[in-house]
């Protein structure tokens, strides 16, 4: 490790800002190539307050956040990156009132590209509500 500080440990210590702060996204757990983030339910996520229908928008934002964190967990480097593409399969609807969890794994990294997959659930990883894959590219030189 040529960096004086582990980039992932640094990431975990940063207070949420921007859209992460608006959604209330927080870190749950992590490993050598994965990160699990969560987002508490808010009535602002509803598409139809009467029917208790939750928008899938926060799900996508949480996936994006978890996938980015998983890449830093694997590379232990702080590199500028951008989401190239993202695909979400909606296995079932999210439930109103439940915290969303997204566990993303960075399963491969090349010099310029990182590949991730992500499982979204409501506290029980074996009962996912969405599954996603996303690829990112490193925008900086090198």
């Amino acid at each position: 490790m040529d960096q004086e500080e582990d980039a992932f440990e640094r990431l975990k210590g940063i207070a949420p800002r921007g859209h992460h702060a608006l959604l209330g996204i927080f870190n749950v757990d992590d490993g050598p190539d994965w990160a699990e983030l969560a987002c508490p339910f808010s009535p602002d996520f509803l598409m139809d307050a009467g029917a208790g229908l939750v928008s899938s928008g926060p799900v996508v934002s949480l996936i994006d956040a978890a996938a980015g964190a998983a890449i830093i967990a694997r590379t232990r480097q702080w590199r500028a990156m951008a989401t190239l593409d993202l695909r979400v399969d909606y296995l079932r609807s999210a439930s109103a009132g439940r915290t969303l969890y997204a566990r993303a794994t960075c399963y491969h990294v090349t010099r310029k590209v990182a590949f991730t997959r992500c499982n979204v659930h409501e506290g029980q990883g074996a009962d996912p509500l969405a599954f996603a894959t996303a690829s990112f590219f490193f925008t900086g030189a090198s």
């Binding site: 921007g18 859209h19 608006l22 926060p58 996508v60 500028a80």
Partner: peptide, 21 residues
């Protein structure tokens, strides 16, 4: 500013949400 991701850019998930909606 509540929709910002990396500094100076809209959050990817926000753009995705706009497309979905």
């Amino acid at each position: 500013s509540q929709l910002e991701g990396r500094e100076g850019f809209l959050y990817g998930g926000v753009i995705a949400s706009l497309l979905e909606l």
